[in-house]
Amino acid sequence: MKHAGRGIACMWYPIGFTVAANPSSAVVKVNEDGTATLLTGTVEVGQGSLTVLGQIVAQELGISAEDVHVISADTDVTPMDTGAIASRTTFVTGNAVRLAAAEAKSILLEVAAEMLGVEVRELEAANHQIRVKTFPEKRISLADVAMGAQIARGRPPLGSASFNPPTVAMDPETGQGKPFAAYVYATQITDVEVDDETGEVEVLHVYAAHDSGTAINPALVEGQVEGGIAMGIGMALSEEILFNPEGRQINPNLTNYLIPTSLDMPPIDIDIIESYDPVGPFGAKGVGEPTLVPTAPAILNAIYDAVGVRITDLPATAEKILMAIRKKERSNVKGLEPGEGDT
């Protein structure tokens, strides 16, 4: 017989890592036509970070994403970066590219102020223009400013910058300190169905609410959440490297090491909770790693809700769940307290 269950789990997760400083740096060049080129030492690993970094540059310069060309991942060409790790790219590299773009922009604003006959502080870059904040009709195209800056005034608009998150070293004895500049939060609720004859679990639905600070690109945040949940389902139910008694892996292949396939993936409802981080670029934090963190406990809590057994060693394979159900049934026959089906 199949039993339905629902489980909830929440989590917190820090952005960046803490053992040492973890700086990023960037170079932004604004071309004579008002497009821009970003040089970053981070590496695109499939998550879409280059797109996000391009959007941050575009935002700072008041241009659109397609106006920014991103060059990455070449130690001879791009400046240093601590790397695509620790959910840090949007927050740390994002701040470095924002600061580099701001430096290029300051040259453009100075040149535009001369061209328009106003003070620099009166100006903003928006919608491909540099314009007077209080009187937007007074404006000049970013392309004209960039061309003028380089050709007429000899001031090519480029910027370079670095960023390192503000942290406070932890006390070695008590661990007290400020190890991270920012944390994100998330909750996932899962619906499952558990077959009490086979122990098999089907994840029917996941409701995921994730804080990422400002979502620079909501579509990419959703992509991270979906991918993280796939990884979390594998952790909860099926994935495990097994060893023989001599210490040799016995399932180093995708036939016997079971990751979820598209057929195992449930519908996922995603809510992006936008908070505004005072340090992150345009309020952004990060989202890469935390997406999988609440998935396994939400599933395990749902299994308990469905059949009253609490699996405490992952993965909760069908075999383990079935054994726990049997053990619980035997306990009930003996008149023990119900709900004591813990493994």
């Binding site: 300190g177 909750t187 639905h205 609410a209 981080d277």
Partner: peptide, 25 residues
């Protein structure tokens, strides 16, 4: 936090309530 850090931009409760609302908890 457990390391003595004052936490900013804490959206935990909002994630809990939003997921609960979305799922009909």
């Amino acid at each position: 936090s457990h390391t003595g850090q004052v936490l900013q931009a804490v959206a935990l409760e909002e994630t809990l309530l939003t997921a609960a609302k979305r799922s009909g908890w």
